[in-house]
């Protein structure tokens, strides 16, 4: 479904991604594991197309030069230079890191803003599904999103991405800043939406322990380069992963 081939991204002269290649097949959950500054977010921005918008803004500002080499193919078509809104229309939807929500709007209104490309009826259907996925949100329907806790905001952010009806859902560090219990709830929901709605998921995370058991395959990224890849179970038993991410 998604093939990233030899992707290189420079911010001015700093190399953020170095010859990264990966593949996501339809129906899979694929993890990208790496520490801070490994290039996870850059990868997500490149796949979702946000980086194209960032590059245009930097050019206008006369700021840093962002260069992108290599290519990204989605369903067999090269999408490397396509603007983000067209990628969203084709089904690639990103939920950015640090649970981005619209703080001044209520939970329900957040869903309706996210459903810009969908009809009111479609939005209502998905919102019902999101409430079944994340029951705590039901009680918070009318509350301003800015007043929700981090975990609740993360649930909302994933729900908002679902409202767009993605075919490929990109989750950038969905577990960041969440309690272990909340992490489990979010991971369970990711598995459920993959199984029930058949949404393909590519997620990046630095917490390998809760993620590796549920992913079909995972890639380990360090300093913008791929160091390891394999099935979730393989990586769980890999001694390097154990020492680097599990502290064993």
């Amino acid at each position: 479904m998604l093939v990233v081939n030899n992707l290189m991204v420079f911010f001015e002269n700093a190399l953020a991604l170095n010859g990264l290649s990966l593949e996501v097949r339809e129906g899979e959950i694929v993890g990208v594991i790496g520490s801070n500054s490994a290039g996870k977010t850059t990868l997500m921005n490149a796949v979702s197309g946000l980086i194209i918008d960032m590059r245009i803004k930097e050019i206008r500002r006369g700021g840093q030069r962002i260069s992108i080499y290599g290519n990204i193919a989605y369903k067999g078509e090269d999408i490397t230079g396509i603007p983000p809104e067209l990628r969203v229309k084709n089904g690639i939807v990103l939920s950015r890191e640090r649970h981005p929500v619209f703080p001044e709007s209520s939970v329900l209104e957040n869903f309706r803003i996210a459903g810009y490309l969908r009809t009111k009826k479609e939005v209502r259907e998905v919102v019902d599904y999101v409430f079944s996925l994340f029951p705590p949100l039901v009680k918070l329907k009318k509350r301003k999103a800015g007043f929700l806790s981090g975990g609740e905001q993360q649930m909302l952010a994933i729900g908002m991405a679902l409202v767009v009806r993605p075919k490929l859902l990109l989750l950038d560090e969905p577990l960041l800043g969440l309690s272990p219990m909340m992490q489990k709830a979010v991971v369970d929901a990711i598995v459920a939406l993959n199984k029930e709605s058949g949404i393909t998921v590519l997620l990046s995370e630095q917490f390998a322990r809760p993620v590796l058991p549920v992913v079909d395959r995972a890639y380990v990224v360090e300093n913008g380069m791929l160091t390891l890849s394999g099935t979730g179970a393989d990586l769980m038993n890999n001694p390097e992963i154990k020492s680097a991410y599990f502290g064993v």
Partner: peptide, 27 residues
Amino acid sequence: THHTAIGLAFRGIAQDERTALTFGIDS
């Protein structure tokens, strides 16, 4: 701004442009 798709998109983009972009709202 509260009950039409474009009006809601306006409110979204006013609050967080980059997040609005991830929902296909063209800034």
